[in-house]
């Protein structure tokens, strides 16, 4: 599901449309708020409060009672609701396989490609040290 928070809402919506999701009732209207982001002292010690980030959350319920919860960084209300809907669908045996192949897998592949490309660009800036041989004879 982590793949969804990294995708744009129109991407998710376009892919989700292909599996004809059932209608869902709103359990929680998309709501923007904050989370306090925590770091650790020294990177691995006791936690401390670094600063806040905007987050939007939503919750939906399918006709059979399955509930889905959506959380994402930022203030995109549509995206929070779409994630909540996907969270509900992934729990349903009749939708989970299609969700995986038609929505999650393509998003994952696209993100993987982009991440790989990015990593290759970064890798090109890695330093190769060499030593100059001094003539001391």
């Amino acid at each position: 599901m982590a793949v969804l928070v990294h995708a744009a809402s129109d991407q998710i919506a376009a892919l989700l449309a292909e599996i004809a999701p059932p209608s869902a009732e709103t359990l929680r209207e998309p709501e923007a708020g904050l989370v306090m982001v925590r770091g650790r002292i020294g990177g691995d010690g006791a936690p401390f409060n670094l600063g806040e980030a905007t987050v939007t959350r939503a919750a939906v319920r399918l006709a059979d009672g399955t509930c889905g919860f959506g959380y994402t960084l930022g203030r995109d209300r549509d995206k929070a609701r779409l994630i909540a809907l996907c969270d509900a669908l992934v729990q349903r045996d009749d939708y989970a396989p299609a969700l995986e192949t038609k929505v999650l897998a393509p998003l994952r592949d696209a993100q993987q490609t982009e991440r790989q490309q990015h990593a290759e660009q970064i890798a090109a800036t890695k330093v190769d040290f060499y030593t100059l041989v001094r003539g001391e004879d």
């Binding site: 989370v35 982001v37 925590r38 806040e52």
Partner: peptide, 16 residues
């Protein structure tokens, strides 16, 4: 930021 509710705190981030 003062206008938004706070939902809670994240898990401490892992810089490693």
């Amino acid at each position: 930021r003062a206008t938004l509710p706070r939902f809670g705190a994240t898990e401490p981030l892992d810089t490693a």
